[in-house]
């Protein structure tokens, strides 16, 4: 409990510092009130969140590790290359996919739509969704962080 409180305090301090620094230095866009509220809400739930952001955080991955900045706003979504700096490559991910499912339904990591951005399916702070299911409505695909 105490540990969590400290963690939260650190996040809030960092948040205040970035905002102040950005405003003062003028080299980064200061975050809006909505963005700060969003960060506060995400920080509050990050220890128990079932979504990918939470799952990463609970395994020792910080906000900056994915977003590239300590206090990410709307303009700082994680890019595919950031994901792949840990998750190796699309080809490697494709190999992890269940072979029987891939044979019958195709492999989502070898999509016929080309290389999609990871975040099309894998959402950090929302339930992840399988984009394939928009058309292939009966494909028995599941995804972590749902």
């Amino acid at each position: 409990m105490k540990k969590r409180l400290v963690k939260r305090l650190i996040i809030l301090c960092l948040l205040a510092m970035t905002w102040a620094a950005a405003g003062w230095a003028g080299d980064a866009k200061p975050l809006s009130r909505e963005e700060l509220d969003m960060i506060r809400e995400i920080s509050r739930e990050i220890d128990s969140s079932p979504y990918l952001g939470g799952l990463h955080y609970q395994n020792g991955v910080s906000c900056q590790d994915c977003h590239g900045v300590p206090q990410p706003g709307w303009d700082d979504p994680p890019e595919a290359e950031q994901c792949l700096s840990c998750h190796e490559s699309r080809e490697a991910l494709a190999k992890l996919f269940d072979k029987e499912l891939a044979r019958k339904w195709g492999n989502p990591h070898e999509s016929h739509l080309g290389d999609l951005d990871c975040a099309v399916c894998h959402k950090g702070h929302l339930a992840s969704t399988v984009y394939c299911l928009g058309c292939h409505t009966n494909a028995p695909f599941s995804i972590p962080g749902q």
Binding site: S111, H112, L113, G114, V120, Y131, C135
Partner: peptide, 10 residues
């Protein structure tokens, strides 16, 4: 959409 090509690519 998050992928290019619309209906054409499919």
């Amino acid at each position: 959409m998050p992928a290019y090509g619309g209906n054409s690519i499919i």
